[in-house]
Amino acid sequence: CHSECLGNCSQPDDPTKCVACRNFYLDGRCVETCPPPYYHFQDWRCVNFSFCQDLHHKCKNSRRQGCHQYVIHNNKCIPECPSGYTMNSSNLLCTPCLGPCPKVCHLLEGEKTIDSVTSAQELRGCTVINGSLIINIRGGNNLAAELEANLGLIEEISGYLKIRRSYALVSLSFFRKLRLIRGETLEIGNYSFYALDNQNLRQLWDWSKHNLTITQGKLFFHYNPKLCLSEIHKMEEVSGTKGRQERNDIALKTNGDQASCENELLKFSYIRTSFDKILLRWEPYWPPDFRDLLGFMLFYKEAPYQNVTEFDGQDACGSNSWTVVDIDPPLRSNDPKSQNHPGWLMRGLKPWTQYAIFVKTLVTFSDERRTYGAKSDIIYVQTDATNPSVPLDPISVSNSSSQIILKWKPPSDPNGNITHYLVFWERQAEDSELFELDYCLKGLKLPSRTWSPPFESEDSQKHNQSEYEDSAGECCSCPKTDSQILKELEESSFRKTFEDYLHNVVFVPRKT
């Protein structure tokens, strides 16, 4: 048989008469490798580009789960590009990614509803959504962080984005990388972005840091009482949809009607710091009717980097990364020049730590249904340095008659930039024990000054392991946590139920 035959053949030295091919099969003959313009397919066939392209389009058009959109890589027609490569849609070739590779997620039936953290986790790592997304989240724990972890990498949506009755959302900033909504599939009414009845939605994105392009379709905003109209108009300008909307697409009466839409800028007039305090004062603000001013709200939190936005980490279910302080308005003076500047002394802060701070007014709604208010920009203030805590785990070892090696770990709280350490030492008198000992005694162990690591005695271990207080009263049991108490109650309830079950099964009433 021919060298490319495997198993047997019907005619000697003829690659077209093989029972099976050793390498690849091409047009009725066995070959060692697939010549151009053919590609290896499933490690035994040679196919042309049209064959591989037909497989790709067949799966793409069917949208069946589990099928493969075949691509070409290293002269092979394979189910998908290997790690580190992405497909070129024009020629199906796998090309190296520039940075992290995109991950295209194809949605069944063309859309997916995100109504819980669990459903959001199914899209973790996706960068391109081939379909439409509907966000409908009523509640949950730590929602802002969970949504950002699972949806934060999405850069492109081919269909539309719909935010509907998501009472738990305060902001859409968890879509931190969303840059493009194509609108290839539109919501009824030709809408590519749809926001309806979101009672706590206050911000779409921080438009000073976020760009969003909507290729096709219109915007729809109705019944978002805490979303200011200025935020919607800003989205029109940034996304390129200005002029597409009709009169009733953006409701003037049901958007922002319960919001404090600040239209003035508060400026800080005085800032002073110490290692654990920050004193702030800002310019006074009074609405047209000074009785509408209820006070100020001061927001602050630790910020290692200057990239904080107002609604980071917030949701309507209680999660809030900001510390909020309510401040009463100052006494009002008739003389504008003698107006008191409101302020606040922030206490209990960490030394040498940068804080993000902003302040906003708290006002009631005027009778004319106009909203007044003022808010400052987010500023960054760093507390002063102070003395560091003591170095940890000092170790001293003498390696000769004239040297001592000293080692330690950095302090747990540096409280500033540590530039150097101060080492103090003092000579001590020799131990009298060394002169009084009889060095001729056998088995004498000389006193040693070398360091030995501390260890816990058996008594201390027994005390720590004991669940009861000892007789001397030195140790006591740790208080039980809520989960331990709940577990004990469940076990007790189970024992009672099981005992009742045994009584009912074992003891049967005697027939009379």
Rank of each mutant, 00 (worst) to 15 (best):
K103D: 02
K103A: 05
K103S: 05
V104L: 05
H106P: 08
H106G: 09
L107H: 12
L108H: 11
L108P: 11
G110Q: 06
E111G: 15
K112P: 03
V117A: 06
T118H: 14
S119T: 07
A120F: 02
A120D: 01
A120M: 13
Q121G: 01
Q121I: 04
L123N: 01
R124I: 05
R124L: 08
T127K: 15
V128H: 06
V128W: 15
L133R: 01
L133A: 04
I134M: 05
N136K: 05
N136F: 03
G140L: 15
N141H: 15
N141D: 02
N141S: 11
L143A: 00
E146L: 02
L147I: 13
A149D: 11
L151S: 01
L151W: 00
I154C: 03
E155Q: 07
I157P: 01
S158Q: 10
S158P: 02
S158A: 12
Y160G: 04
Y160L: 10
S166W: 00
Y167M: 08
Y167N: 09
A168K: 00
A168V: 05
V170S: 07
S171G: 13
L172E: 03
L172P: 08
F175D: 01
R176F: 05
K177H: 09
R179Y: 14
R179T: 13
R179V: 10
L180Y: 11
T185R: 13
L186V: 09
E187D: 15
E187R: 09
E187I: 13
G189W: 09
G189A: 13
N190S: 13
Y191M: 09
F193V: 10
A195K: 00
D197I: 01
N198I: 04
N198G: 15
N198V: 05
N198H: 01
L201G: 01
L204A: 15
D206E: 08
W207R: 14
W207P: 09
S208Y: 12
H210T: 14
N211F: 05
N211G: 04
N211C: 08
L212I: 13
I214W: 04
T215N: 11
T215M: 08
Q216P: 01
G217V: 02
K218N: 15
L219E: 03
L219R: 06
L219N: 15
F221I: 15
H222Q: 07
Y223C: 12
K226A: 03
L227V: 06
C228E: 04
C228G: 05
H233R: 02
K234P: 01
K234W: 06
E236S: 07
V238G: 13
G240Q: 12
T241W: 11
K242Y: 06
G243F: 13
Q245D: 12
D249K: 14
D249E: 15
A251G: 14
A251N: 15
A251Y: 15
T254L: 09
G256L: 05
G256I: 03
D257G: 00
A259V: 06
A259Q: 04
S260E: 02
S260Y: 02
E262M: 02
N263K: 11
N263I: 08
L266Y: 01
F268S: 03
S269Q: 10
R272F: 14
T273F: 11
S274D: 14
S274L: 09
K277M: 11
I278R: 00
I278L: 02
L280V: 15
W282H: 02
W282E: 00
E283T: 12
Y285F: 05
P287Q: 01
P287E: 00
P287H: 01
D292Q: 02
L293Q: 01
F299E: 09
F299K: 06
Y300L: 13
K301R: 13
Y305V: 14
Y305Q: 01
Y305M: 13
Q306F: 02
Q306S: 12
V308N: 01
G313L: 07
C317G: 08
N320H: 14
S321T: 09
V325S: 13
D326K: 12
P329F: 05
P329E: 01
D335T: 14
P336H: 10
Q339I: 13
H341W: 10
P342N: 06
P342L: 06
G343E: 13
W344I: 00
W344G: 14
M346R: 07
M346S: 10
R347C: 08
G348S: 08
L349Q: 04
P351G: 07
W352Y: 05
W352M: 06
T353C: 07
Q354M: 00
Y355A: 03
I357V: 15
I357N: 01
I357T: 10
F358C: 00
F358Q: 06
V359Y: 03
K360D: 02
L362R: 03
F365A: 14
D367F: 03
E368V: 15
E368I: 12
R370K: 03
S376R: 00
D377T: 08
I378R: 09
I378M: 14
I379Q: 12
I379K: 14
Y380S: 12
V381T: 12
Q382W: 10
T383E: 01
T383R: 02
D384V: 15
D384R: 03
T386Q: 03
P388R: 06
P391H: 01
P394E: 03
P394K: 07
S396I: 07
S398T: 15
S398G: 08
N399V: 08
S401P: 10
S402C: 10
I404Y: 01
I405L: 14
I405W: 13
K407G: 03
K407L: 08
K409N: 07
